[in-house]
Design a protein around this nucleic acid. Sequence first.
DNA 1: ACAAAGAATGAATATTGATTCAATGCTTGC
DNA 2: GCAAGCATTGAATCAATATTCATTCTTTGT
Lengths: 209, 209
Amino acid sequence: MAYRETEKMRQRKAEARKKIIECTWECVSEGGFRSARMTRIAGLAGVATGTIYRHFESREDLFAEIFRLATQREVDKVAEALAVDGSAVERLDNALRQFARRALKGPMKAWALIAEPVDPKVEEERLVYRKAYANLFEQAIRSGITEGCIPDQDARLTSTCLVGAISESLVGPLSPTQTETPPGHDNNEDELVDTIVCFCLRGLTGTRS
Amino acid sequence: MAYRETEKMRQRKAEARKKIIECTWECVSEGGFRSARMTRIAGLAGVATGTIYRHFESREDLFAEIFRLATQREVDKVAEALAVDGSAVERLDNALRQFARRALKGPMKAWALIAEPVDPKVEEERLVYRKAYANLFEQAIRSGITEGCIPDQDARLTSTCLVGAISESLVGPLSPTQTETPPGHDNNEDELVDTIVCFCLRGLTGTRS
DNA sequence: ACAAAGAATGAATATTGATTCAATGCTTGC
DNA sequence: GCAAGCATTGAATCAATATTCATTCTTTGT
């Protein structure tokens, strides 16, 4: 008996794995999942293509993992934004804004996560996370109903409507075919967010707040 | 000189093309674009695979054409539903219901058109048609603003929100992983439609109609 | 009936990266 | 320093269909 996995090795492997994940996300951030090549990822991470396969079952599995990690960050941000003090409507307002702002800040990333056509395993993850968003919103809507600031409704379904409305209206501007984001921080980006959020809140509350 | 394309031939070719289109749509209706094989399409249409390539540049082009034809039918239906008598809100209500009902009636077709991951050329068509829907809604919203039954807003953007909200909330029910559509015409399908439409109209009008 | 011009055929080919795996290089404990 | 076992390498292989194209069949006008 001569070789036994030691802590040092475990760490080194963990680092390699982390590096692969980072470089994959870098590729995805540049051009989405479809155009991310294993060879490029390996090159960026400074490993051979074969090495990737000691850390991930397959390309699809790697991508699913990357998707999970990236989306979880976003879901957490939304959860955070929903956790502030205030009425349910105020908290939803805050969360929707957060979602939209972040999407507009990293359009290619947002497109990859929200709208890019992806392989089945990744699409599965997407459905999971859409549900995660919807669940968060749903909970907030429920408390709004209890509080009385939101009329009674099918919170599960209307939370899905929120996700749809905000995603679609961002994907238009986000779509990588329409990359022409003008130079300066357009303040009509704020108007964009305002309009979308306003639509969403009206949809829930039925008032012209 | 001996052979010159005659009317009879032109017709025969047109028929073959039509048959290919029909059979492609049949395949797509069964399992979406991804799983539609050229060989299967050729088989159904009673032609050789090579023959398809006399009518269409490539698989992607064929699919883009099929997508265009199928979606145009849906867009026309929405346009029709918007053309009835009544206030803008009533007309939008009608159109949104139409959209949702048709989608729920042919879930696989609707999934292929709305949410299936597709190749770039087809995705491009999808964006065109999303815009087509949005344009129709936008026009109606504009007249609503003029009529006074809808408050002033960025109609282009809120029309996009409509498309997003209705698409997203249908994707769950449409998803082919949840094919188990119970036998009878579920009346909770009607509730589904009601809730979605209600959300959309509230989003536009800001009233609890 | 014949030859010229297409049209149709479908088995063979091309494509495109993901994936494998035999060879090589590192680590470890003694 | 050595041998056992694991990790890494990356060129070669594979897979899955779309696409091609030499061949065969049809149509047309004379």
